[in-house]
Amino acid sequence: MKRGMIDFWVGLFAVAGAAALLFLALKVSSQSTQPASSSYTITAEFENIGSLKVRAPVKSAGVVVGRVTRIELDPERYVARATLALDNHYHFSRDSSAEILTSGLLGEQYIGLEPGADEHNLKQGDRITITSSAIVLEQLISRFLFSKAETAGEQAKEHTQ
């Protein structure tokens, strides 16, 4: 193999490798985690977060506006505190409400933000006060069964009277 041919093939190899990397970068992946500089963080407290995970999306009207960066338990009040990093482009009023929703029946859980009507917007470090917890399937079923049993009991009582 002549020197010139080796140079040619190695050059082609390097370009092909770079092209593969570029393909992986542009076509296959995206920068989904936002850099810390272009986001502001707020907190929200929930009685139960279900199976919400760190890095779960925060959506408003179905559009991803941020990510959950931290989840911890408040050791005094025993509520879960989720820290949300929201994109700087999006502003939400101070009385916005947050709820934990599930995408699909078995999908991942995410936080849905419902905008409010207050003139002041949420700032770095603020806390969302209106929240609703995740729906835990077991609790839902047991509540349903209890109410069913209750009505059945009442009906039985009426029957005997």
Binding site: A25, K27, S29
Partner: peptide, 11 residues
């Protein structure tokens, strides 16, 4: 694929 694969974390 593009929305779920992170450049820094995965690639």
């Amino acid at each position: 694929m593009q929305s779920q694969v992170d450049f820094r974390l995965d690639v």
